[in-house]
Amino acid sequence: MADIAQLKSVSSQVRRDIVRMVHANSSGHPGGSLGCVEYFVALYFEILNHNSADFDMDGFDEDIFFLSNGHISPVWYSVLAHSGYFEKAELATFRKLNSRLQGHPATEEGLEGIRIASGSLGQGLSVGIGTAITKKLNGEDSLIYTLHGDGELQEGQIWEAAMYAAANKVDNLIATVDYNGRQIDGDVDDVLSLGDLEGKWKAFGWEVITEDNGNDIESVINVLNKAKTLTGKGKPVMILLRTEMGQGVDYMMGTHKWHGSAPNDEQLANALGQLEETLGDY
């Protein structure tokens, strides 16, 4: 396993990147991005078998990740940059005119690390299943990872995909739900409750693991490794990852209000005061 202290150091820098990126545009989605830092750092620095130096759309013999809840692009862009997919300096172009770092991820300008556009919710699980099938057809044992918001599960397409993957034994797929309980309009339970989410996925025929410490890097690595051991056994795997929206910035935690709002100058300074600059700001 990688040095946990080092991964925590990366995580702190990624959090600084996130708040600086959204502040610079007065737009973007810091809440979910901050909550998913440990997932992305664990995935890209420990779990994925991937080639960041020479990105290839087809990703033969590589594990492949799809972000279905594309609005948390800041965390993905930052982790991709820190993983070596592109220069960190490019993070400064986020959401600016002519940037490859679109508000929601896009492939059009060839940003390394991105294989499909996302933003309109509910589509990434289907895409992941498709690539998982192609991996099998190509005789590869690589894995497909997808990430979804919990609010995103209100989209019907998710459940079409859930049914398909189980019925067709797509067992080289590890989906994760960012189970933070919040969406733009408020708490998920108030907007449209997901009910017994673990029971739902199990009833759909998935192997389900719930991890309560989604903002603890070691716990996230462990649950992803556990999920890997469950692949290849005839069932798709779902991780329900409990996270805290806004994790790491005190005033962004415990509320849905920072789902899609950017900090002002004063709030930025406050946030950066809570996040150590470990690897140098972009």
């Binding site: 759309m57 087809d58 699980l125 289907s126 895409v127 498709g130 690539t131 099938i133 192609t134 057809l137």
Partner: peptide, 10 residues
């Protein structure tokens, strides 16, 4: 969606 994903890998 699956069709889109299946293109990745040829």
């Amino acid at each position: 969606g699956m069709a889109a994903g299946m293109t990745i890998g040829g």
